[in-house]
Write a protein that binds this DNA or RNA. Sequence first.
DNA 1: TCGTACATGTAATCAGTTACATGATTAT
DNA 2: ATAATCATGTAACTGATTACATGTACGA
Lengths: 184, 184
Amino acid sequence: MSLPHAILTALVEKPSSGLELTRRFDKSIGYFWSATHQQIYRELGKLEADGLIRALPGGQPARGQKKSYEVLPAGRDELARWTAAPQDPKPLRDAMLLRLRAAAVVGTSGIEADLRRHLELHERQLAEYEEIEERDFPPGRDSTEDRLRHLVLRAGIDLETFWTQWLRHALTQFGELPDEGGRT
Amino acid sequence: MSLPHAILTALVEKPSSGLELTRRFDKSIGYFWSATHQQIYRELGKLEADGLIRALPGGQPARGQKKSYEVLPAGRDELARWTAAPQDPKPLRDAMLLRLRAAAVVGTSGIEADLRRHLELHERQLAEYEEIEERDFPPGRDSTEDRLRHLVLRAGIDLETFWTQWLRHALTQFGELPDEGGRT
DNA sequence: TCGTACATGTAATCAGTTACATGATTAT
DNA sequence: ATAATCATGTAACTGATTACATGTACGA
């Protein structure tokens, strides 16, 4: 149940319309909690009905017209409550690891190309994160808020670093492997 | 759409009943693709209807009676097809990172205790993985199948190592932070 | 007036979770 | 007999994804 809180966080940072939120969920917050515009509009409706946010005054009408929201005190309270409440980490769920486990019994043919492709994708993501770090967190002077945001970005950087290293290591194994590991 | 393939992989490794699969999904395969018994029984029904698996001969009847399944050639083919097919990595979705981002705007009070708790949980998981590595992959002699399974376990170990390090780093930051970062 | 980008939404479907129901087997 | 455990399932709900629908504003 984190999507409403992701939206609240984004709206506290800056009041926005649905489409603006959608764009921000394509980067920034979306780097660790993605959402589509359909999810966002639905959730905005619920949050408004629950009295956690409201449409910015300036009476905008219906369809096709921009409608911006801001967080109400109740919304800020709910966000603070959720942030402090204990939550168990979700167990890992990764399809590539599953595919390698499957490859151990049905053969590895075909998977190597996709490992290479994933390596490229993770390298690209890592480069993007590192650009952001250079741009937004120059060495030396992080404010309190910046320090936390930097910490989150560091997690992204370190995770992408892990994946690129692990994928490179995986690919070295493939040079030594027969193309078919399964008993077909 | 990976659950059926996780089950196929488990059943190729060893024909099993629903409950046996459930137990194996609490460890082993479940370490990177978890599933509850409800999901598993539902999926076993679908896989049987689709002709990818079948109940082991020895005419078992209905409720309360054990019923084991094995993978049919069509199931093995489908698993090989899925393993080789390109799939995009799913974007990261992590509630703890979101909570820290939220903490940057509504204050950090309360979250530190949960960071410590997460650190303990990840340390425990890491220790468990390392035991498995020692027990199942002694240095030197990995077969082809073992090499792939070891690779997957390494990913688990390295990921847990990352989390423990990152959480420790995060906690050092908290010593220097005021309890309230938000403008209440 | 036509196409394109902006902007907000609905509907259907799918995957995962939670709560509950039912029967068989075994030990006390 | 009865309680605990093994074993298989149903039902309801929630969250996420995919496809589609509708309307506005603006430039060519």
